[in-house]
Design a protein around this nucleic acid. Sequence first.
RNA 1: GGCGGGGUAGCCAAGUGGUAAGGUCGCGGUCUGCAAAACCGCUAUUCGCGGGUUCGAUUCCCGCCCCCGCCUCCA
Length: 472
Amino acid sequence: MPLRFFNTYSRGVEEFEPRDPSARHICMYTCGPTVYSRAHIGNFRAYIFEDLLQRHLELRGYKVHRVMNITDVDDKTIRGTGEAGIPLRKFTEQFKQAFFEDADTLRIKRANEYPAATDQRYIDRMIEMISTLISKGLAYQAEDKSVYYRINKFPNYGKLAHFDLSQLQSTGRVKHDEYDKEHIGDFALWKAWDEEDGDVKWDSPWGPGRPGWHIECSAMSTALLGDQLDIHCGGVDNIFPHHEAEIAQSEGVTEKKFVRYWLHCAHLLVDGQKMAKSLGNFYTVPDVLAKGYTGRELRYALLRVHYRVPLNFTWDGMNEARESLGRIDEWLARLREVVGSARRADRTPRRGVPTSKFEEALDDDLNISAALGFLFESIRETNRAMDQNEMDAATANAWLDWWKRINTVLDLEAEFEIIVPPEVMQLAKERENARREKKWKRSDELREQISVLGWEVRDTKDGAKITRRGAA
RNA sequence: GGCGGGGUAGCCAAGUGGUAAGGUCGCGGUCUGCAAAACCGCUAUUCGCGGGUUCGAUUCCCGCCCCCGCCUCCA
């Protein structure tokens, strides 16, 4: 089955064909964080979706060149730097670091590049692009000295969002100098400096100022990936105006089709509402860790729902993630035991070898729920085979190899060999002795003590086993 | 008002023109000294509501209801 994705531009599922099909090389641009505060887990849902996309493409043999921008200048960062009384660079640096920390906690694969909007290279390129747009009549400098995109001159404006321009109405969310603009929908390419900006400013042919939000992505994506991208991703809230503006800017300059596939991730909800800084209903990665959950548990919780479906974040959902991962952990441990024991099966396995259904589900617009369904079905069937001693070492090994393969996409394995602390080992030893003497009451007391320390002891036919659920 | 996304069991969530994957929770059983883990069984006569097409619809068509988002610097 060919790889297929839902393309926002066409509003349909399309077969995926990269620009250069023979090279198996894909260039992908993903909108990154604005570093004015710590990103919340709703932001990270989008980054995890992009991570899944990249990893699946790689599993399918593509070489992915991914760029994620860091927006380190905009209204909010300027406000923040002013309030903190420190230079912009210093202000944004802390959140940049926090972003990478959290991304690592969630096992998000690093992009190849993280260009920053304030990098002089890109400021220069933005100025160059704006100049080109002005010379083509696609942009103009208004009386307020800012430069705006003339959307009426770009016939495709509104195609991505499927908006009718005459229907655009101001939400009052953004400060407007509406009298200066020719059309309410014209967006800023270059924002003229004003007092509130303090010393945040760059020189330009139109006077001191700073870039508009949208132009940075056009400048950085085309600088690093070329005029035409295979895939461009972001949250659904980026469709309009941000990505619409990117198309207008990039195609306005290059006159080439900017992006082949637009993929957008639905929102993370809390209590049925969008998680947003402005609503105050958000959690950060450290918030979730502080509740005792691990990064991989959060990764699972954010990964397990299809990217185009809104996902309601709940602590029940986190517990479910923990239990599901525990099931995977137990399964892997059992398979490894079978491999280690070089056991021969009593009978031939009822179920032979792993299938490729997992990857095939992901081929279908990253249908992770179906893919995980196959994983858990396989877990049940192989557990049953092991229960009935119908699993030999070679088959168990084949399943471990299968897991290794799908885990390049999931990245959900517990990170460390769990080291049982000596005091727990001591208690377990005492308990073994008590059990040997059939002192059941003493044995149960010791099990309880071990449990209080956060460990679980299990009696199997091969002796006691000490485990812990909720591993990193 | 315009444009999208969604409504499937207590909760989360796949899916198909032919009679509902999977996870989690709960209950019963096997195993166990008792547990745990694992396995087995049970848990939606039914897929927001009302029509229509069809031998047959949760799936296609029409109408309606509800929730969420976007509509100029939100992932």
